[in-house]
Design a protein around this nucleic acid. Structure first.
Lengths: 186, 186
DNA sequence: AACATTTCTTGATTCTAATCAAGCAGCCAC
DNA sequence: GTGGCTGCTTGATTAGAATCAAGAAATGTT
């Protein structure tokens, strides 16, 4: 399972993979368990082996603002907190019982020290696209949904549409109508 | 002028400042001159000593999509291209004749090697807020303009409202109306 | 199974910003 | 100066998504 995690990032040889397996921790997390809390400084990357997780922040009014939905074989973390080592504005929690890999910053440093291949982690950390950041919001609800259908259709099986709508920054009603319209078009 | 650049990032002692001055390059750029071109991998951070610059990308239709407006005493660069060392999707150009400092990645590495204080550059590079990314687009046109008024009012003196509107992802008409409404409220 | 709760859909209405359109002011070139 | 741009404003209309509202379907609980 650790091999999958590396394969999504780049190319690593057997020696690299062995190093990685020694650094990474396997965690079994229960539904609702919190992996990163607002105010804490992110210290780890996570990889979803199996299960589902999501990232969200709380607006002043207390509303849940979903910034990331994560499925099997996806890395997830708070990029800004991790890279800048500043307190997180968001929470990361398991949406379902999950098996996740946890890789600390210290481990990444150790790995880079031992093998240059691990420099490839830089692009992962630098990419804000892991979250909802992809949606720069010049996109219409239809385009957002089309993107999900195209690139991450399984989201719709795993998470309630309500959460997907929150993630896409549209209302559940609008999502429902977009889906209805698209279904009729087929 | 180099001292200003460091002061916006954190605290540095006299030795650090001397190291910095040896690494940084002073460039005089003309209006319209391009500092980063689409397709190139970003290799430098820039600091606007004096003048104005902006970042933009071209949509398939050829429209200019402004993602950053930069004034005196502001750092600017393409964070994703720089951090991940991937080709840039955007251009950075001078909007007016300017004096800018240029600091290469290699220089940053050298500086970090010589003084731990330069670790502070990590937060700068990690912060995507330098661009328009601040606007997560849950904000209304009024809120966007209020933010500019509050935090970067000089933008309105330096750049045409047309560009500010593009930066805020609203139409010039909407910006005009927001301004008119706010002026009447005073 | 019966009930309660949550999620999803559908319809009617409202609201906001985009679009379409026109006019004005400032500025440059000639 | 005159003519032609460009930027800015103002008005009328349109379009699209949010909101408000209600009911149906699915899910969970006892």
């Amino acid at each position: 399972m650790q091999a999958n995690a590396l394969d999504t990032i780049g190319t690593f040889n057997a020696t690299d993979k062995a190093l990685f397996e020694k650094e990474v921790k396997i965690r079994h997390v229960d539904k609702g368990e919190v992996l990163l809390r607002e105010g804490m400084v992110a210290n780890s990357l996570f990889f979803n082996v199996n299960g589902a997780a999501f990232q969200y922040s709380l607006s002043p009014s207390g509303a849940e603002n979903i910034t990331g939905l994560y499925m099997a074989n996806e890395w997830f973390f708070n990029p800004s907190s991790l890279a800048a080592q500043t307190p997180s504005h968001s929470f990361i929690a398991a949406y379902a019982d999950s098996i996740v890999l946890e890789l600390s910053i210290q481990s990444i440093h150790t790995l880079i020290y031992k093998s240059a291949a691990f420099f490839q982690f830089n692009s992962l950390i630098a990419q804000p696209t892991t979250g909802a950041y992809f949606f720069d919001n010049t996109l219409t609800p239809f385009q957002k949904y089309a993107y999900i259908l195209e690139h991450r259709p399984a989201l719709l099986q795993i998470f309630p549409l309500k959460m997907v709508a929150a993630y896409l920054k549209i209302t559940p009603e609008t999502l429902s109508r977009v889906r209805e319209k698209l279904a009729r078009a087929d």
